[in-house]
Design a protein around this nucleic acid. Structure first.
Length: 165
DNA sequence: CAATAGATCATCT
DNA sequence: GATGATCTATTGC
């Protein structure tokens, strides 16, 4: 795709519903969490720490809560544009190796909240190479509740993840 | 290296 | 009014 900013997702975290104290949806439907309880395949985007937007994909049927936080991306196309949005990044692997950096590099903001992800704002890539890879599992990063739940998933040995274990 | 501090604001109590 | 699914710069060993 010419001119598009795209990449391979290499790190995610799952956030569940009413049983997951770390999830925004834990407290039920509010103006903010409305999207999480909506249709799957839509983007839930929120502001974190007053500074960064984080991208999630709603993953449960309408009426129940659950989403996947997209934490890191291996850039595939539009790398020059990502660099222009994140001039401080010195290496390609620093462009989108964290949820806040990722949205910055891709130009995704809360303006996309609720958007249908299957209709073009994201391009999902198959693995970049034919090399086999393994999926690592670990606790989620930066949370206080349910801190030991193994709900972070990442491509092992991949240098674009935010941390390797 | 590892640990800590500060920036900054929408959301919910 | 307190909190937080982050990031960067800075301090200290």
């Amino acid at each position: 795709m010419h001119g598009s900013v795209s990449g391979r997702i290499v790190e995610t975290e799952a956030y569940l519903g009413l049983e997951d104290r770390a999830a925004h949806a834990f407290r039920g439907v509010t103006p903010r969490t409305r999207v999480i309880f909506g249709k799957p395949g839509h983007a839930y985007i929120y502001l974190i720490y007053g500074m960064y937007d984080c991208l999630n994909i709603v993953a449960e049927p309408e009426g129940s809560a659950g989403c996947v936080l997209i934490r890191a991306l291996e850039p595939v196309s539009g790398i020059a544009r990502m660099r222009s949005r994140r001039p401080a990044a010195r290496r390609d692997e620093d462009l989108a190796n964290g949820p806040g950096k990722l949205t910055l590099a891709m130009g995704i903001t809360r303006r996309h909240n609720g958007a249908d992800v299957t209709s073009g704002i994201l391009t999902v890539h198959a693995p970049v190479s034919e090399e086999p890879f393994e999926i690592g599992v670990s606790p989620r990063i930066g949370i206080t509740h349910c801190a030991d739940w193994p709900l972070r998933f990442f491509v092992r040995e991949n240098r674009f993840v935010s941390r390797s274990s």
